[in-house]
Design a protein around this nucleic acid. Structure first.
Lengths: 226, 226
DNA sequence: CGGATGGTTGAGCTGGATCAACAAACGTGG
DNA sequence: CCACGTTTGTTGATCCAGCTCAACCATCCG
């Protein structure tokens, strides 16, 4: 049942063991929620195909997207061993996830030291990633953040065997803006600017990276302090 | 040796077990590094007394502080099971930490299911905290971020048995600014504004919260969209 | 084909940054 | 203990990156 639900960052052997835990898959249509803030926590999920976003909503309606998830990513890690989910997760497109029951995963990882270590590493990596995101939105200018976003997405797609230079954005300008801490108009303008500068070609959600190094230099040359 | 190195969020019994792993304590003077980016990873650390900051430095000198750590906090969680540290940690004042060897901790937690679960919960909570920080710097205005910072610090101090309304800031305006994604001048101006509004009294690093609810309303009333 | 949703672009505004001057506290050495 | 430089904080004046408001266009879908 669970086959092909291989979380990235887990060795093939242990992935197979996890696979056995998977008794259920969930199909989500675009926009549908996998879970919402406050829902009881019972499992983590591995993206099988499609893509997801993690988001928080403030009482006044403002929202922050804290992550986009591609096939092989594990979601729900911020709620492990909690009573209820701390965030909401929604599908960016038609998506399927494997349900990995949390308690079974914890129990199994006690029997399999290597799984234990790998799961701990995944949690730790997630923390490290979040710190990089904090660095990004706390210290970089809008232009640098968007370049980072493209480079990061490119790399993650390439790891999964997709083209690193040509891909489709599964999320809207507004969602990109929310993730990067800027408004959708700013995202749109910067995409246009990157295109004018010959760094990318973009029409709609179809992106082609033309000058990867140029994109990297948006980061270095960012502040241009002599 | 290790006694009184009790990490918050670990049950007293398990804390005692961890305590046995502690063979070493490290004394840090103000400004001294516990470790730097790239240093080989070997342990996590529990703050015994004093306080620390976690930071990242960009090639061009810009830096981002991603966390302040009080007694009972565990630091180094973003590097667990990695080869090397992903961030730097420095002392904000004279500080002592307990060294908890990582491999021993992992091994012990295999034998003690309750410890395993608690350690996993701590990692997960750290992720959840980081998401809240992303929400804060990505979606809130400067004023709201600073109010959040004060309320958060107040709560953490109160959990540790200190006054929730009167405390000393261990960090400079510049460090607060780096943490919150704003400049030190803005921090200083906002402190003055809060003081003028009768929310706090502040001189130097000595803070007294006068109107806790008012401070909370800085958050709610933030955007004032009827 | 028409309405809705999503993206682009312009014009003008503003929150927070930058630049700058000064003031207060803190060593440090005599 | 005081004088003195250094570091840290405050406040003012000005600037600008990114936001807001608005008009328009493209695409998608029933």
């Amino acid at each position: 049942m669970g086959q092909f639900c291989l979380p990235l960052g887990i060795s093939p052997e242990d992935a197979k063991r996890i696979d056995i835990l998977v008794k259920e898959r969930i199909r989500l249509e675009k926009g549908q929620a996998l879970f919402n803030i406050g829902d009881p926590f019972s499992a983590v999920y591995s993206v099988r195909f499609g893509s997801l976003k993690t988001l928080f909503v403030l009482p006044d309606g403002r929202q922050q997207i804290t992550g986009f998830h591609l096939p092989g990513d594990l979601v729900g890690l911020d709620s492990v061993v909690n009573q209820s989910h701390m965030s909401s997760v929604r599908a960016l497109e038609d998506t399927e996830v494997c349900v990995i029951p949390a308690m079974e995963l914890i129990t199994l990882s006690r029997e399999l030291p290597s799984l234990h270590i790998q799961f701990t590493r995944l949690l730790s990596q997630e923390i490290s990633n979040d710190h990089r995101k904090l660095l990004m939105i706390g210290s970089l200018r809008a232009e640098e953040r968007l370049a980072t976003f493209l480079l990061d997405l490119s790399e993650r797609l390439s790891i999964r065997g997709y083209s690193s230079t040509e891909f489709v954005l599964r999320m809207s300008r507004e969602e990109i803006g929310s993730y990067l801490g800027m408004k959708l108009e700013t995202v749109s303008r910067l995409f246009s600017r990157f295109a004018r500068a010959g760094l990318i070609r973009i029409q709609q959600k179809q992106v082609k990276i033309i000058d990867m190094d140029g994109l990297r230099q948006v980061l270095n040359g960012g502040s241009e302090r002599e």
